[in-house]
Amino acid sequence: MQSASRIGRRFDKLKKEGRAGLITFVTAGDPDLATSAEILHGLPAAGADLIELGMPFSDPMADGPAIQASSLRALKSGMRLKKTLTLVADFRREDVETPVVLMGYYNPIYVYGVDRFVADAVKSGVDGLIVVDLPPEEVDELWQPARAAGIDFIFLTAPTSDDKRLPKIVARATGFIYYVSIIGITGTRSASIADVKKAVQRIRKHTRLPIGVGFGIRTPEQAAEIAAVADAAVVGSALVDIVAGGLDANGKPKPGLAGRVLDRVAALAEGVRRARVKVA
């Protein structure tokens, strides 16, 4: 059966190829709009199967230092939600296959206006949303219009999401499930692979959706390990750190920054493809 959404189609394709996917996270407008656009446009060729794009927010309370800093860099460079949507629209003119998921916090969306945001997101070619501070209990005012417009809604699950909590989460989840393999904030400690495997099996009992596992993956080897037990490996802080390390004293990107990020993505993609996992 052909999946209706771009995200569904992408996971179908991965399944056919018998491998897991690589999901990359970068923040829109980090360190500036031009560099961010260059990275975004290069991601599919570098091997990203699905793109998560951070919507910058002044108070990213679920994120660790790396992504906090990237959010603030983006805001300082003048990034706004409207520009993030335009960035996706520009990308969409070149690439109609690679899913783009916007990830961020609710307040900028709320202030933009939920209906207007959903309409503009669809127009720009956004495929999914992750809104970190909207738990399933509070999500309906955005979830309903987003779903009605065909946008997938992805939720985070954590080791603390027990068997009582998971059904509430998966009931609203579409596209894929994002499993945060460590307790806490993004980009800090990485989990043991045995724990991740067990957790993925536990989540599978509750849903048939693909499962992406993230937080703490830095090397192609770690990406390969995750790819062996999940449907996709998510890499964020490791890429954002390359951006942070590629700035001059004035915070401007040094030449070749986008290329260095894309080189790392290519290496991680190679790791994921090497894992060659048969998805159950």
Partner: peptide, 21 residues
Amino acid sequence: APGVLHGNRTYLLQTDDGQII
């Protein structure tokens, strides 16, 4: 203006882009 921060919906000091000031 109305907004959502720290798990509550309330009036906030913020920019027209929803960034908290």
